[in-house]
C-alpha cells in the first residue's frame, strides 16, 4: 500500500481508437484478463478519496493502459468562482495518473451554495461564454494542460440564446485554447428533441478542435404525444447514432472514441463488443478516404 505513490506514470497519449468507461465492477476482470482495448476513462470525482481500493485498482490498470479523465463536477458554466478544493483534488489526480486527455462537462448550477449539476442547459450568450472561457482558462492554467469541453444533451430551449451551440463551443475553444469532446449521442438526442439536422451540426464542428468522441445509449419517451429522447448512458448505442458516428468520422477524421455506459452497467464483454464496433467504423472510415496522391 505504501509503494502506491512510488510509481511515476508518463503522459501516454490516448490513441485514436475505442476506449471504455472504467467501472468498479470490472476492476478484477480487467486485471486478470486485460482486454484488447485502446484506453480507459474515469470520472475523477470517483477517485477523490484519500486512498483505498479505487486507487489501488486504478493504479494497476493505469500501468497497462492510457487513461482519460472526464470530470462532471467543476460546473464550468456557473457564474461564481470555481471550487478551489475541487480543482486541487483534480490536479492531484492528473499529477498522479498523468491522463492523456482531461475533459469536463459543460454544466452550470444556479443555486447558491448548492451543487446541482445539469439542472438546466447553459445559456448560449456572450455573458455565459465569457464565464466559460474564464473558467476553462483557469482550469487549464492550474492543471497545466489543455482540457476538452463537451456538447450537452438538452431537453428544452432557452429564450435568450444569442448564438447556436456550435458557435458557442467553437468560440469557447478559440478563446480559451481548449478542445472539444464531441458527444455523438448528445448531438443525436438534441437533434431529435429540437428538430435540427444532426449531420449539419457535426459538419459545423472543425475536426481539428475535436480531441475525443463519446458514444452512449439513450431512452425514448412519449410525453403527451411528443417524442423526447433522454440521454441516460444505460443501454447500447443505437443504430442512428452509429450512423451519425460514421458520418462524423468521415468529416473530422478518426479520434479517440469512448463507450459510455454508467447506469445498469453490463458485463465487460458487452462494453468490449461496443468498442469493437466503434473501431470497425473508424477503420472503415479511414479506408474509404481517398488516398493521398503524391505529385
Amino acid at each position: 500500500m505504501q509503494s502506491s505513490h512510488l510509481h511515476k506514470f508518463s503522459k501516454d497519449p490516448i490513441p485514436a481508437r475505442a476506449g471504455i468507461g472504467l467501472k468498479a465492477q470490472h476492476y478484477r476482470e480487467i486485471l486478470e484478463t486485460p482486454p484488447d482495448l485502446g484506453w480507459f476513462e474515469v470520472h475523477p470525482e470517483n477517485y477523490m478519496g484519500a486512498g483505498g481500493p479505487p486507487h489501488r485498482y486504478l493504479e494497476a490498470i493505469r500501468r497497462n493502459y492510457p487513461l482519460s479523465m472526464h470530470g462532471v463536477g467543476l460546473s464550468l458554466g456557473s457564474a461564481g468562482p470555481l471550487d478551489k478544493d475541487h480543482l486541487k483534488s483534480l490536479k492531484d489526480l492528473t499529477d498522479r495518473y498523468q491522463p492523456g486527455l482531461v475533459s469536463e462537462h459543460l454544466s452550470w448550477s444556479h443555486g447558491q451554495e448548492v451543487f446541482m449539476n445539469d439542472l438546466l442547459p447553459l445559456f448560449y450568450t456572450e455573458e455565459s461564454l465569457s464565464v466559460v472561457v474564464d473558467h476553462v482558462s483557469e482550469v487549464q492554467d492550474f492543471l497545466g494542460c489543455q482540457i476538452l469541453i463537451e456538447n450537452p444533451s438538452t431537453y428544452l430551449t432557452l429564450k435568450d440564446n444569442e448564438m447556436s451551440e456550435t458557435e458557442f463551443l467553437i468560440e469557447a475553444a478559440k478563446r480559451s485554447g481548449c478542445g472539444l469532446l464531441l458527444d455523438i449521442n448528445n448531438v443525436y438526442v438534441c437533434a431529435r428533441n429540437h428538430g435540427f439536422d444532426p449531420m449539419a451540426y457535426v459538419s459545423e464542428i472543425p475536426g481539428d478542435l475535436v480531441g475525443e468522441i463519446h458514444l452512449a445509449g439513450h431512452q425514448v419517451f412519449d410525453i403527451q404525444g411528443t417524442e423526447l429522447r433522454i440521454d441516460d448512458h444505460g443501454s447500447a448505442v443505437c443504430e442512428d447514432v452509429w450512423h451519425l458516428h460514421a458520418h462524423a468520422l468521415s468529416l473530422i477524421g478518426t479520434k479517440p472514441m469512448l463507450i459510455e455506459w454508467d447506469t445498469d452497467v453490463p458485463e465487460l464483454s458487452v462494453l468490449m463488443s461496443e468498442a469493437v464496433k466503434a473501431d470497425r467504423i473508424a477503420v472503415a472510415s479511414e479506408e474509404s478516404k481517398p488516398s493521398v496522391k503524391v505529385s
Partner: peptide, 27 residues
C-alpha cells in the same frame, strides 16, 4: 428550480411549447 415552488422565474427563461413542466422534470 430545484424546489418546484421556485420554478416560476426559471420558467420565464424557457420556450414554452406546452410541455414546459415535463421538460423541466427531465432535468
Amino acid at each position: 428550480m430545484f424546489d418546484p415552488s421556485t420554478g416560476a422565474d426559471v420558467a420565464s427563461w424557457i420556450e414554452d411549447d406546452g410541455l414546459l413542466e415535463d421538460r423541466l422534470n427531465v432535468y
